[in-house]
Write a protein that binds this DNA or RNA. Structure first.
Lengths: 244, 244
DNA sequence: TTCTGTGAAATAGTTCACAGCG
DNA sequence: CGCTGTGAACTATTTCACAGAA
């Protein structure tokens, strides 16, 4: 029983089978490595890089071994080589043009975020529904109408769709992006969008992140002060107000 | 992380020990439940909610049981009750005032994002280093100088610090926030910041998310087209065939 | 000697499957 | 009956610990 789900005459071999957990850490390693490279470091030990990435050294070594990266015993890993290899594994040796749907506050901020372009995700297109916004230029890109989305995706060879619409329009935006042939979406709205299985969606939701922080903060405060109410602010529970 | 390691005279009992995996899903359930509540639904089965949240029903039931939430056999879970209980567990029955450090494009977008305030994370303070920005008003909040950060945190009873500075200033911002007594940080820069163990940091990094998307997109494209180069763009990197 | 690569053990998390309450 | 709550099996991931390459 290979890992394949359904019927697959070609079990694997072509598939190195990198675990999701590993994939999630690769960008962290890469980030740390870029810092080291900037400092002129030629090699790193798994221990040093693990510290930077805040993981266990064994985990790091296993991750690297798992994607076929090998170091030198007694020495460590070659920084430049590592950067290159991880980049290849992540697919960063090529550009992945991005379209942003929804040019409000957030969309505008994203369009202006140069980290995107410099990291290989050039913002090639912006679309919105608002006629007042369509035609304006943001970060050097002219905003087009969302009705032309499919055409635009095709024309600009877009690879990734970013959803920065109001929550109410998120599902529609996703549907259109998928209809245009995209299989990689990044959803900035707080709603869960549903997609066919071949589409990869990742969500970046502020509220979610904050709620998780809130949980841990509450827990640690409670632990510290016995039966703690956090901070100085004492808002008695109750009030489940917005049952919306 | 770092739950009790070695010596702990009081093993637990006070600590319900909710798993990280569960905590990460609670906001998703909550989101789905709010939608159901909005539709006027009075109760849900684990199956229905699991579908909305895209998880296995057993996982959902276990999560809920794990935080002490109980349903009614043969019926399901009471929506309003669930919303309330999850909110309490996440600590959402109180407000967690937020400070944003760095009022650039991103900081401004975050400050204007009303989702924050409506979900119990009011943006109470903004600080920046730029004298041109200090004194201006963004989203109804006057930007103060970062030198006053500690004072501001104290005055406004801030609970969460959001780092929206340029990457180069991220660590310094984190240090100041921690120095001001905060234990919950949300880092929007692409750099890994280091903090003492009692501080919870969560990162929302666009590049990381996109790199992960890139990986999966590349994998699926490769799988689909045999030996695939993705999309129409054919950037043959140099053959990085393994070097093992 | 140092530091990788990896069996093997330990942990964590998921999912099945079903007893049993309402 | 339908659907929860959970033992038990299973799968995934982490971590230890150490053999062995450079």
């Amino acid at each position: 029983m290979s890992a394949a789900d359904g019927v697959d005459p070609t079990p694997d071999q072509t598939t190195p089978r990198v675990s999701d957990a590993t994939v999630g850490r690769l960008p962290v390693y890469l980030q740390g490595l870029l810092g080291l490279a900037g400092d002129g470091e030629a090699s790193v030990s798994s221990e040093a890089l693990a510290e930077i990435a805040a993981v266990n050294p064994a985990t790091l070594r296993r991750d690297l071994a798992g994607i076929g990266i090998t170091g030198t015993r007694g020495v460590g890993y070659d920084v430049k080589y590592l950067v290159h290899e991880i980049s290849v594994v992540l697919g960063l040796n090529q550009a992945w043009p991005v379209i942003i749907v929804g040019v409000g506050n957030l969309g505008r901020a994203l369009a202006n975020y140069e980290g995107l372009t410099t990291q290989g995700f050039p913002v090639r297109a912006l679309v919105d529904v608002d006629p007042d916004v369509v035609g304006t230029s943001v970060a050097g890109v002219v905003v087009e109408h969302v009705d032309d989305l499919s055409k635009v995706v095709d024309r600009d060879e877009i690879a990734v769709g970013v959803i920065a619409t109001p929550a109410s329009a998120a599902q529609a935006a996703a549907d259109e992006l998928i209809g245009a042939g995209l299989a990689s979406l990044l959803n900035f709205t707080p709603v869960q969008i549903t997609t066919p299985p071949h589409v990869q969606v990742r969500g970046v939701d502020l509220a979610t992140e904050l709620q998780i922080l809130s949980f841990y903060q509450q827990r640690s405060t409670a632990a510290a002060s016995g039966t703690g109410v956090p901070l100085g602010a004492e808002h008695a529970p109750d009030s489940t107000d917005d049952a919306s």
